[in-house]
Write a protein that binds this DNA or RNA. Structure first.
Lengths: 253, 253
DNA sequence: CGTTGCGTTGAGTACCATCAACTGGGGTGG
DNA sequence: CCACCCCAGTTGATGGTACTCAACGCAACG
């Protein structure tokens, strides 16, 4: 259903305008021209500079609750998850972040982190200083619109997940998660037509879908037995896209 | 968990600044000075005028899917719900709107309605023209920030609900819904310490919590039997706030 | 070669759904 | 005024999806 990432691919401005001002390391970045990066680099003032790229190991946290990092992260490679804990220690994953996604956008409004972000694989990300972004925003509202865009898209995505948890069974949830991830990765050139990188542990899937790891295993097994999807070597292959979308209740035009 | 409505009560500017430009009907509005209304009325340009107040009957829709109303609604009285349908006809309520809440904020980014909004009671609301808002936003970014604020707060709320559906049982979900609504209404002076207006049908609660109406009835009954909450005459009374917050796993400082 | 992490599988169970019957209030029309 | 219906909610019986607990397989790793 919802597009998670509607950020319009802005006109390729690689050779025009502020070409000379492109921060080092962005030149070859596949995310250049999209999302926050596009908005920042389109900004009239040349103030903002990408902070140095940071790398963080799998299982470590990019943002910790209570922190006030003062910077927003754009994932450049690897997968991460935003999550919360409940009383008894179980987790709920709020969203899964793949390259091109933004973490910590709420810092524009709230100074401190309430939703920790954990790297699911080794992750490298670029940081943007919130204070600088705000300054730019004053002169150039298009940046703020870009934020609004990201925020509203993210909310749409969260709401889609809410419907899944409220009104769909485990098979549908899993089928939809897979289809959704595939669609997002495809849109960024990170997956081919029937397969994609898939570093998610079953526990992470369970935490995202409101299930237990054991049950995710069962549903996965049933998908495998029915030749619908298969996971091997860190990749997921969709063997029967029609069946998958059928279970997911996603209809192509 | 989350404040749904963090919009700072801006300084009372009723007698300063643009006092002369306050649209008719706003003068006595309790929402004046909050949220979008505040941002619009603080805007330097005097362009925006509140559209005439609209009233809509219970069960009717404020926004219909596919529509491009070109205006955003701020609920002035009554309750409404944003929802979606799934294949088999069941519904999932994405959020419940009470006076002061905004409906259709996504129209700033997407022109057409994807999430219908239904009035749960008779509802009256004020409309703001999206095109005009955008114009104002160009001159005065603070309006866009107000939108960001609303959007991020809304997302926080949705995510809190996501955790409920993913990781909490029916009792906890209901307790949390009640506590949350009470907190929101309290913040707007629409509820007293232990009771609030409560026009929700059990089916609407079920649709919000991912349950069936029958099960909501059972949980409600158990709350009543344990003297925790009670619904009568369109109002809900919290007889035992400690027990309620305890079930909800909400801890007061 | 023990350990650790991840996934699989089985047995028993709980929570909530489903189906269905029934109550009671409020409106409407005969 | 009463019969009727509709709507919202209650209650009971039954069943299924997903949870819990637990054992086990397997690969990676030190």
């Amino acid at each position: 259903m919802s597009e998670s990432f509607v950020l319009q691919d802005k006109a390729q401005d690689s050779h025009g305008g502020i070409a000379g001002g492109i921060p080092a390391g962005c030149a070859d970045c596949p995310l250049r021209g999209k999302g926050i990066c596009a908005a920042v680099m389109d900004a009239k003032s040349g103030k903002q500079r990408r902070k140095s790229e940071t790398t963080i190991r799998a299982r470590h946290q990019i943002f910790r609750p209570g922190e006030t990092p003062g910077r927003i992260a754009v994932i450049r490679s690897g997968w991460a998850a935003r999550f919360t804990h409940v009383q008894d220690g179980r987790r709920q994953v709020l969203s899964i972040l793949v390259p091109g996604d933004t973490a910590g956008a709420e810092l524009v409004v709230f100074p401190s982190i309430r939703v920790p972000v954990q790297a699911l694989t080794d992750v490298s990300y670029c940081s943007f200083d919130v204070a600088e972004l705000k300054e730019i925003g004053v002169e150039d509202p298009s940046l703020v619109w870009a934020f609004l865009n990201i925020c509203i898209s993210g909310r749409k995505e969260t709401e889609a997940r809410l419907v899944d948890l409220g009104r769909r069974n485990a098979e549908q949830r899993l089928a939809r998660l897979i289809a959704e991830l595939h669609r997002r990765l495809r849109g960024r050139g990170l997956a081919d037509e029937t397969s994609m990188p898939f570093p998610l542990r079953q526990q992470a899937i369970a935490d995202a879908l409101g299930l237990t790891q054991v049950h995710v295993s069962r549903v996965m097994s049933s998908f495998r037995e029915n030749n619908i999807v298969q996971v091997a070597g860190g990749r997921l292959s969709i063997m029967d896209m029609d069946a998958l979308l059928d279970i997911a209740e996603i209809y192509r035009r």
